[in-house]
Structure formats: structure tokens, C-alpha cells
Amino acid sequence: MFQTGGLIVFCGLLALPLPVDLASSPTDIAGQLTGALSNGLLSGGLLDTIKNLPLLDILKTGNSSDGLLGRLLQQLLNPLESLTGIEITKPKLLEIDLTPSEDGHRLIVNIPLGFDVNFRVPVVNLRLLKLSVKLNVSVEVYPQKDENGIHLVLGGCSQSPADVKIALLDGTQTFLIQRLINKLVNILTNTIPKFVLGEVCSIVNGVLSQLDVTIVQSIAENLIPGKNISISV
């Protein structure tokens, strides 16, 4: 016959808080993952890396010595004045979001970034223009099982073209520097994402390797269906 005392103990156990991986909803688990990635990217120095992108070297590869374009670029790219001529400001990590892959067995982590690039001609102290740059790095994450349990590993890592918005400063006339603007936007749109991509993917890979096992288990069970978890031996 069932003991009354046993019933009291059983009900008491039901009232205890559930472990994190069982009590958390998929939304909570997604928040834990995005929070870990955000903290890892920031503590890993991503924003400092963006602020110190080698823009001088990037732009020199597209330099032309012909006409007005060449003269303006030479002023902007003068190595002795590059620190005041070109400056990256306001680097920021925007809100990370997660999207299931079409097959349902991976997560696509979208990492949006933004920063400003300020150009001025130091010789005449002319604030020329400002470029507001936004770009997105997409990282694939999937679970992998080995003899030590389930881990999250980095799959594909790609970036979309940068979105560049232009603001002219100090009354600069567009028609005078249109060729310069076109060249700057073209070079930066095609090259900056490639510089940022490697840094983002490296830091994300490090964060995944350090995630708590209970969070990994929860992600694999709740966010990524585990039907086709690959086995690594």
C-alpha cells in the first residue's frame, strides 16, 4: 500500500526547480547561446580589430595616380598623415539572431556589425566624407557527438556584401569627388567583409568549444533536431 509519507516526499520533489536544461524554453536557450556568442566576440577583441582594420593598405591597392581622383587619394593615403586622414569610429556589435537551416539540423547564426569610416584631407583640415558601414557574418553551427559527448562545432562561415551609406561633410560638392566616392565604396564594400570574416569565425569557434555541456545538450535537443547528429571518432 502506498505510504502517505512517500507521497509527501514525491510531491516535494516535483516542487523543486528543474535543472537549467530541462526548465529552459527554446527561447531561453537561444538567449543563452546568443549571449555567450556576444560576450565572446566582445571579450575576444572583435571591436578593436574592426577599429584597427588596415584601411590604408586596402585603399592603396586601388589607388590611381591619374587626375583629380589620384591627387585626392594621394592626400588621403599619405603614410605620414594616415592616422588623422582615415579613422574608423563607433564599431558596434548589433543584435545576434538565430535561424534554423532548411534541413532543420543546423543553426545559422547571423552576426551584424556596424562602424563609421571618416575621411578628411589633413593638409587643409577638410572633413571630406563619412561612410557608415553595416555588414553581416553568417555562421553555421551543428552538433557533433564523440566519445566525450555532444559538442557544437562550426560549419560554414560567410559574409554578405557591406552596406555603405555616404554622408558628405563641410559642404563638400558631390560632383567634385564623385569618382573618389565610387572608388572608396567599391573597394571597401568588396574587401572589408573579408577582413572581418576570419576574425569573427575564429572567435565564434573558440566560444563554441568552451560552452557549458548542459547548454550544448539543450541546444542540440531543443534548437537543432538530433536525428542526424554526426559521430566523430
Rank of each mutant, 00 (worst) to 15 (best):
L69M: 15
G6D: 14
P79A: 04
L98Y: 06
D21A: 10
T34V: 06
A23C: 08
N136I: 14
R71N: 10
C201Q: 13
V233K: 13
G149M: 00
L13M: 12
T99S: 07
S65C: 12
A220G: 04
N63Y: 14
P193E: 05
L76T: 04
E95V: 12
F119L: 00
G67N: 13
I166G: 01
K92F: 06
I229S: 14
A36N: 09
L154I: 07
G149S: 00
L16G: 01
I8Y: 10
P54Y: 01
T34P: 05
K60G: 12
I177K: 00
L76S: 06
L41R: 02
D116M: 00
L128A: 01
I8M: 09
R179E: 09
T89P: 01
L42P: 04
L55P: 01
C11T: 10
I108V: 14
N63H: 08
L56I: 04
L154Y: 12
R179F: 15
L188P: 00
P143N: 12
I29T: 10
R179P: 15
G85Q: 11
L154F: 09
L126I: 02
G114A: 10
I88Y: 00
C201Y: 08
D146W: 03
L76N: 05
D97L: 10
L83R: 15
S101G: 15
P193M: 07
I150G: 03
L16C: 04
G198V: 11
V216T: 04
A220F: 04
G40R: 04
L83V: 15
N110P: 15
V196T: 03
K90M: 03
L33T: 08
E81N: 14
T191K: 07
D57W: 05
D116K: 02
P122T: 05
Q173S: 09
L94R: 05
Q74F: 14
V139R: 13
S138R: 11
R120M: 03
D66I: 15
P112I: 10
N148T: 06
D21S: 08
G6L: 13
L98G: 09
I111P: 08
I108R: 10
I219R: 05
I203C: 05
G206L: 08
S25E: 13
L135T: 05
R106H: 12
L7N: 13
I88V: 06
P19S: 01
L128G: 00
V117W: 00
S158G: 09
M1I: 08
E140K: 12
H105G: 15
I203W: 05
E95W: 13
G198K: 13
E140R: 11
L135W: 02
N118D: 02
G40C: 04
N78R: 08
G198N: 08
L152E: 11
D103N: 14
T4L: 08
G226A: 07
V133M: 02
L55K: 00
K165S: 12
N39F: 15
G155S: 15
G114R: 04
C201M: 09
S209P: 06
G198S: 09
L211Q: 03
R106N: 15
T191C: 03
K92C: 05
A15S: 13
F195L: 07
I177E: 01
K183E: 13
P19C: 02
L22Q: 09
L46N: 00
L180Q: 03
L22R: 14
E147H: 09
T89M: 01
